[in-house]
Each structure stands twice: as structure tokens, then as C-alpha cells.
Amino acid sequence: MPDLSHPAAHRPGHGDPDWAAMRRILVVRPDNVGDVLMTGPVFRALRAAAPRAALDLLASPAGAAAASLLPQVDGVVTASVSWQQLDLVPGSDPDAELVGDLAARGYDAAIVLTSFSQSPWPAAEVARRAGVPVRVGLSKEFGGGLLTHWVPSPPDEEHQVDRMLGLLAAVGVPSRGIALEVRVPDDAATPLAVVGERYAVVAPGASCPSRRWPAERFAAVVRALAGDGLTVVVSGTERESDLVHAVAGDVGVPLAGGLGLADLASLLAGAEVVVANNSGGVHLADAVGAPVVELFAGTETVDQYRPRTTRAEVLTRPVSCAPCRQLVCPFGQECLAISPDEVVAAARRLRAVHV
């Protein structure tokens, strides 16, 4: 296959940064909880390469909650960045405050992490304006000198963790493994008095309607797992309360809101099996080692996000319109045409190994 990377990428004269000498490094990933959890291997690799450096994460308000669970993260800069907003005021400088904040912190390097469909150039420009001397990122398209270390993008299908570790490897930071990990605080609440010692967790929510397996099918799974003798906890956010209670029905234990992300991690860690849509909950289950059945909509490519740290079964249907990245499916969610019996069977297979 011919090399289609831009000739300006990784241009001569720009050697690997001196990571061991750095005092402060910023990792940029202003996305959702699952995206932040997948940066764990990045921070682990950086900690080994730059042992004296403070490692900070630039996170979105939604993703910042996950940062406290990552063992190697020292600090968090929370911002609603311009390149993640749809409605910007004409003539304004929405990133001005962020630029000032980053400049005051005095970072030696910024590592811009992106999915295959995202551009690193807006973040690189913010870092340049903030005076960050080393700016690293992946890109297919031309962006001039905004990145000091511009690494050609790998194939779109590559797993997100591999994509991020490949970026680091290209600038002299070797991988320290692909496994996800989180640090669950000792004071995280696990409501064992409510759920008992043997339980499953069902998480029917997702960030958009196109990723949600139908509630009535989740409810059928809850009834089947309860029939197996498990307490079935149905978890979700406060905004998902109606969905959580509908799925729980008369046999499940609804937990909508009231649990922080650390509490949820503690809850998932003790579950015999977790059943969830493609969402942050899957990556959290992956990180704590809980067996997980994932209902994967065709909004993305499975191999980019597949759980790899824990035992998992990913259920989906191949469709010609995937990956669509639609918020609402314009068809009939053929990619999620999966029966409750299939999900229950997958959950039982995973439990047979777990118990």
C-alpha cells in the first residue's frame, strides 16, 4: 500500500522531545467519559518516560469526572473548548480564557489525542497561543506548523488505545501495555445492602438515541437474569430516571442518579456480568475487570472501541450504513436487531467463567 501521509508530517530536523527533562505535560482529550478512560495507557506510558513531570488532562465537563479515576493523572483542566461546540458567537474568542490558563501553567508539551474523525489542529493552535513549545498530534490533513511533531494518522479502523499509543511511540514514548485501569477510592459507595453479594448491572442509557438498544428488550434481560437468582441493578443518570425505572420493572433495582463515577466503578467491579450499550459504562466495566455484554450500534466501528482488558461479548449486526455517527437512526436500528435471548445467552456464558 502506498504511503499517503502528507510529506510535511514528521519533517526532518524535528527529533523526539526530551521527555525525561520535562516538568509539566498536558494531554488533550476533551471528549466523553469513555474516551477519557481509554487514555489510561497513555498516562501510564508517559509516567515511565517522563518520571519527573506533572501529567495533566485537558477534559470536557463531561469527561473530567473520569480523570480522577486514572492513577497517573496529576491534575485536570476542565474546559468547553471551541472545537467541541456547535454554536459559537461570531467575532468572539471562545478559547481566550483557556489560552491564558494554559500559559500560566507553563506546560513543556501538549499531546493532542483524537479519534480518526477529529482534527488536532484547533487544539494545537490553542497550545501554540499558550506558548507550549512541544505540540504533538496525529493528522491526515495539512495544518502548517501548529504541531511541532505531526505524526501521520494510522488506518481509521485501528483501536483507539492503539492509535494513541502509536502517536506516543512515534515521538519516543514506548507503550507500557494496552490494559485499561482505574483507581477506585476507598470511600466509593457500593450499595451492597441493596443489591446483595451476587448481582448483575444493566445500563440501558447512552449518549444519543441511535446507540440505545430498546428499553423493552433490556427489561426482558432484567427479568431473565433475575430468574437466574441474581439481583439486577439498573443504573443510569438522573436524566435517565424514566428509562431506568421502565427497564427495572418489578424485579430490578433502579439506581438513577445518586452514584458518582467512582461509586459506579465500585458497583461494576463486583458484578457477575454487566449489560450495556456502547457507552462510557462499558469502558468503565472493562477497566475494573467486570465481564460485559455490549450492545454496539453502527454509529462507530466495533474494532475501534472493543473492550480488551476484561472478558466481553460485543453484539451487533453488520449493516451497509455503518459507521454512520448519527445521533438519531433514520432507519429502524437494524444494527441493533438483537434479541433478548441472545443477550441473556452471552451473559450466561460470561458468568459461567466468572463464578
Rank of each mutant, 00 (worst) to 15 (best):
R239D: 04
A203I: 09
D162N: 08
A224E: 14
L165F: 06
G258S: 12
R212M: 09
R211L: 15
L243P: 00
A215N: 08
G166V: 08
A265F: 01
V221F: 04
P214T: 13
D242G: 03
W150L: 12
S207K: 04
S210D: 06
P152G: 03
L255H: 07
G177M: 04
L230M: 11
V221D: 07
D162A: 14
R212S: 06
L230I: 11
G196W: 06
S241T: 14
E238S: 14
R212A: 05
A256D: 09
G205F: 01
P155Q: 15
A200C: 09
R239G: 12
R198Y: 01
R211K: 15
Q160K: 14
G258P: 06
P154T: 09
A256K: 05
A203Q: 15
A193V: 03
E216P: 13
P155L: 15
G177R: 03
E197L: 11
G177T: 09
S175E: 12
P191T: 07
E157F: 05
A189I: 14
E238I: 08
L225P: 05
L168D: 06
T231E: 10
R212G: 00
G236Y: 07
A248M: 09
G196K: 04
G177W: 01
A248K: 12
A219Y: 05
G196M: 04
V171D: 10
G196I: 06
L230N: 03
P254Q: 04
H159D: 10
A193S: 03
M164E: 04
A206D: 00
W150E: 12
S175H: 11
P154V: 10
V234F: 03
L230G: 08
P204C: 01
H245L: 13
R217S: 07
V195L: 12
A248P: 10
Y199E: 00
G236Q: 12
A215V: 10
W150R: 14
V247Y: 14
G252K: 04
A246V: 02
L259W: 03
D263P: 09
S241I: 08
V222C: 05
P214N: 08
A189C: 11
E240M: 13
V244G: 04
S175C: 06
L230K: 02
V201A: 01
V151M: 02
S235Y: 00
P214Y: 08
H149G: 00
V151G: 00
R163H: 04
L243F: 02
V221C: 07
A224S: 13
E216F: 06
E216Q: 15
D228K: 03
Y199N: 02
I178Y: 14
D242H: 08
S175V: 09
P254H: 05
Y199H: 02
V244H: 09
D186C: 01
L259V: 03
V161S: 02
G236S: 11
A200H: 02
G258D: 09
P185T: 07
S175R: 06
E158Y: 04
A256V: 10
L255F: 08
L243Y: 04
E181M: 11
L259P: 09
L168C: 05
L259F: 01
